[in-house]
Simulated scan of single mutants.
Amino acid sequence: MKATEVPAIDGAYLFEPTPYADERGFFSRTFDAEVVRSVGLDPDAFVQDSVSRSARGVLRGLHLRSGAGEAKLVRCSYGRIFDVVVDLRPDSPTYLGRAFFELSDATQRSVYIPAGCAHGFQALTEPADTSYRIDRPHDPAEDVTIAYDDPDLAIPWPLPVTSASQRDREAPSLAAVLKRLDLEQTER
């Protein structure tokens, strides 16, 4: 497994395994604590694993957590997704940077998303299963959502959006979320 820094997002990494394929199918290591440790991350920091299944065209995001934030390790375990990360950390050298990835079951690549970054994806296949490892238990009171079609982000979603949650469809603009996060930071 190889870890590569993501230039557009400070502290983000792409983890690329080397699947072994033969006539039976394939075998792939999807997590390696030593490789995670080698880039300065604590593999024991992850406390919760989750999975979502999405139909082709479904869009999930853009999501992040307020407060201490939430770091994630995201992988498409079945199918393919178009994955998006946006850096919303005001002190980051890549503030407002965006990175796009295609994650799939064929490559089993994972993206590490630092706390303070927004994340979203669109399912490119029918279905697409997305696995998440997160470093804090989920607290719905800290959920923050940004409009996935915000013109300031201009994310090139590859397919028409066939479905999104009500929360995602009604999400505020990037500017409104940045203002909210700045106010929360000031109050701390």
Score class of each variant (00 low, 15 high):
Y132Q: 09
H119M: 09
A106K: 15
A128K: 11
H119E: 06
V177L: 01
D139T: 11
E5K: 15
L73K: 00
L178H: 04
P137V: 11
F31N: 10
P151F: 11
L103D: 07
S104M: 02
A115F: 03
D32P: 02
P140C: 03
S38K: 04
V161M: 12
L64T: 09
A141D: 14
A176T: 10
A21T: 14
L96A: 02
L159G: 07
G67T: 11
H63G: 10
A141T: 13
D10Q: 13
A99R: 03
L88M: 13
A68G: 12
L41T: 00
P19L: 11
H138Q: 05
D44Y: 00
E5T: 14
C117H: 01
R136N: 01
D150C: 10
V144N: 04
D150H: 08
E16Y: 00
S54I: 01
R29H: 11
E126Q: 15
D105K: 10
R133V: 00
D83G: 06
P127S: 07
V144S: 08
R75W: 02
F46K: 01
T4M: 11
D152L: 14
Q166L: 13
Y132W: 13
G116F: 11
G116C: 07
Q166D: 08
F121Q: 08
E70Y: 00
D182S: 15
A12L: 03
V111A: 03
V47K: 01
D83L: 10
E34I: 03
L103Y: 05
V51N: 04
I81G: 04
A176I: 06
R133K: 15
A8W: 03
L103H: 06
H63K: 12
E34K: 13
A8N: 11
A123F: 08
Q108T: 09
A115K: 01
S54W: 05
T107I: 03
D139I: 08
S92F: 05
Q185P: 00
R56I: 15
S28M: 06
P19I: 12
E142M: 11
V86C: 10
A128S: 15
A3P: 13
V36L: 01
F100N: 06
G116L: 08
E184F: 12
P127D: 12
D83A: 05
Q185N: 07
S110P: 01
A106S: 13
A68R: 13
F15R: 10
I155N: 10
R136T: 10
Y132N: 05
